[in-house]
Amino acid sequence: MDTSDLPALTDRARRLAGTGARRILGIAGAPGAGKSTLAARIVEGLGASAVLVPMDGFHLAGAELERLGRTDRKGAPDTFDAAGYAALLRRLRRPDGPDAVYAPAFDRALEEPVAGSVRVPADVPLVVTEGNYLLLDEGPWAPVRPLLDEVWFLDADPALRMRRLVDRHVRFGRTRAHAERRAAGSDERNARLVERHRDRADLVVRLG
């Protein structure tokens, strides 16, 4: 990832964190766009002022996907607990007392969500969340966008994004042939859906 714009993006996030109230910044984009990398670098740049809470923690568990017959579509909008994600965002917007809030994360080695993985102290001014479907305006995803103070859409070169996806799938145990089918199939269908909602973002970020 070309980080030439990272200082300006970090400054923008820092201004959002400095408004005096808990704020939530969303980073959206298609699978493989580099959302998690950008979000992690923004949080790293802000230090104790920000915490990263990924949307992927709300993947449905493998057993539930199997029960629903959606295992081969893992990563599609209806393979997440979108209502649970929205409920967490509401709780994060209005910290109730001095106690920390705990959020789930997704363990790529296990291919499963893990509850209670991310601690969000009550005094942290900025929560950064990243995921594919932050800008969707339909079904259980519709409440998410109004809960975010600002959303950036991360635009990536399609060929680069595809290479990242294939490499990621291989890194976590798939054969290259399987990884290429997955990237060109369900991942690409999800990417087209995500792209259709990019005009709801406050900022389009283009990195090399």
Rank of each mutant, 00 (worst) to 15 (best):
W141V: 03
V51I: 14
P7F: 05
D167I: 12
G84C: 04
P77D: 05
A21M: 13
T71A: 14
D96K: 14
V194G: 01
A76P: 07
D123V: 05
R206N: 07
R196P: 00
D2L: 08
G185T: 03
M162C: 08
A103K: 06
R192H: 14
T3E: 06
R41P: 02
R22T: 14
M162N: 07
G139K: 10
R23I: 05
A21N: 15
A159D: 13
G29W: 05
D123R: 14
F172D: 02
D56S: 04
H178W: 09
L88I: 05
K74C: 04
R163Q: 11
L165P: 00
R161A: 13
P121K: 06
H178Q: 14
T71K: 15
H178P: 01
A122F: 07
L165N: 06
E138G: 06
Y85Q: 07
R14E: 12
P77A: 02
P98E: 12
P121V: 02
A109L: 15
R164T: 04
G32P: 01
V120L: 05
G75L: 06
G45H: 13
L135R: 00
F106N: 08
T19L: 13
G32S: 04
H59I: 00
A39W: 00
K74H: 01
M1L: 13
V114F: 08
A63F: 11
R22F: 07
G29M: 09
A100I: 03
L165M: 09
L46M: 13
R182D: 10
L25V: 01
A8R: 11
A87C: 03
T175H: 05
E112L: 06
A201H: 01
A156Q: 09
D2A: 08
E195D: 12
L52P: 05
A201L: 01
E64R: 13
E188D: 14
R182N: 04
D78A: 07
L148E: 00
S4E: 11
L154V: 01
A100L: 06
S4C: 09
R192G: 08
P98W: 03
D137Y: 04
W152P: 02
M1W: 12
S186W: 12
V194P: 00
L165F: 04
G69P: 01
D11I: 13
L6G: 08
A86D: 00
A63Y: 10
D199E: 11
P140G: 03
F172C: 02
L203P: 00
G26Y: 02
D167G: 11
R12E: 12
V205E: 04
V51P: 02
A8V: 14
A191Y: 00
E188A: 13
D137N: 08
E64P: 10
D187C: 09
A39C: 06
D99W: 10
R192D: 11
D72T: 11
G208K: 13
R41Y: 02
R94N: 11
L25F: 04
H169Q: 05
R108W: 14
P140V: 04
L6P: 12
T3A: 09
G173Y: 01
P95H: 09
L147H: 07
D123I: 05
A179K: 06
P7M: 10
A39L: 02
R196G: 01
A21L: 13
R108M: 02
L154A: 01
R41A: 15
R70W: 11
R198I: 00
D107I: 09
D167Y: 07
G131Q: 06
W141F: 11
D99S: 15
I24M: 10
P125G: 03
D155A: 15
F172L: 05
V120R: 04
